[in-house]
């Protein structure tokens, strides 16, 4: 019983992050609105960032900026990776939204089902 409690306390952070990730993932694949899809993608990616940053944390640590007095620093490498990933996510979002604007201009709608109907008719 003690072990189970210990396991839950050590892992529930990750479980919440997984729920966040899946909320975003669901929004991407279930919603026909293109803007909503891209927002879902954004939430999915941002939540993956939280996963990475959570694994970098050391109990009682501080930010990895070397200073007098601090002895334990959290792991800097995941921070670096996620800085890169945030920029990648911005690049993807910008490109996706630019496509959405062009699609709206060409189809008059940003609903995937409606676009599909128009493509079938053509």
């Amino acid at each position: 019983m003690h072990d189970v409690m210990h396991g839950v306390l050590g892992l529930y952070n990750y479980w919440i992050v997984i729920i966040l990730m899946m909320t975003g993932f669901y929004t991407v694949i279930a919603r026909p609105n293109l803007v909503k899809k891209i927002i879902g993608l954004f939430i999915f990616q941002t939540s993956v960032f939280i996963l990475f940053i959570s694994m970098a944390k050391i109990e009682g640590g501080t930010a990895p900026i070397i200073s007098e007095g601090a002895r334990i620093y959290s792991n800097p490498l995941p921070h670096v990776l996620i800085l890169t990933a945030i920029v990648v996510s911005l690049a993807t979002t910008a490109l996706a939204l630019a496509l959405v604007i062009r699609i709206r201009e060409a189809y008059g709608t940003i609903n995937e089902d409606d676009i599909h109907v128009q493509d079938e008719e053509a």
Binding site: M21, L41, Q45, L81, A85, T92, D119
Partner: peptide
């Protein structure tokens, strides 16, 4: 043609899901 736009966006969405899965795996 306009279908190039939807094709690109469809690829972008699926491709980004794929890349995010890879990122989770690498993490």
């Amino acid at each position: 043609g306009r279908r190039a736009l939807t094709a690109a966006l469809q690829y972008l969405v699926m491709g980004t899901i794929g890349a995010t899965f890879i990122l989770i795996g690498i993490g």
